[in-house]
Amino acid sequence: MTDKQALVKYCLRLGDNSLVLSYRLSEWCRNAPILEEDLALTNFAFDMIGRTRLLLNYAGETEGEGRTDDDLAYRRGEREFYNNLIVELPNGDFAATIARQLFISAFEFYFFTALQRSTDTTLSEIAAKTLKEVKYHLAHAADWVIRLGDGTEESHNRMQKAVDELWMFTGELFEMDDVDSLLIGLGIAVNLAELKPKWYDKVSRVLSEATLLVPKDGYVQTGSRKGIHTEYLGHILSEMQFLQRAYPDAKW
């Protein structure tokens, strides 16, 4: 693998994560428990689409074969997507959505903080911009986890269930392969192993404040670094990509 190939894959990984999570969060549009939450979750989705476009365009530029953000979003198959499994899971109830958001936003907070120091200036600039947005996502998700965890018996139980069920998908966030090791050597990528204790500490503090138990680490769901996904990603793509697959280059 060349440096260039590694960088393309790294950008796809980051862009696919925000693209697929953005898609899932958009499903809350007009379905959220209250209007303000409807706005909040779609605002998150919106920030993520902006980020996706920057990252996929950069992946396309780096690759140098003339592929745009749209080409990469609409014309790749499931096995060519590198997003973490946790973002493609169905939304579940509001507790599951908000637990996922806490896990992801806490990860992104430390990740983009570190990526600001990347030797790749495009990535460091995207990181600085994204971090400002992620801070709002994290504050919002943490507030909800605390409110629901430390709420009624029903909300507490559902929040705990969501945290427990999603926990096995969080290990994958920190997985590294040859793409990471090559790019860490060049000062481009973030060493995810260094993030894990910070992430665990932040998430544990929020869960404790929410009177929730931090799950014990156990079996970890994995596969996305190799493009192996849950059954859910294919369904997302069949809907998201339908128009461009059926009518290539359609514009309106």
């Binding site: 303000e36 706005l39 947005e133």
Partner: peptide, 13 residues
Amino acid sequence: LVSRFGSTACKAM
């Protein structure tokens, strides 16, 4: 504060 997120990305309600 009613909502941290509003009609555009840059505003709260």
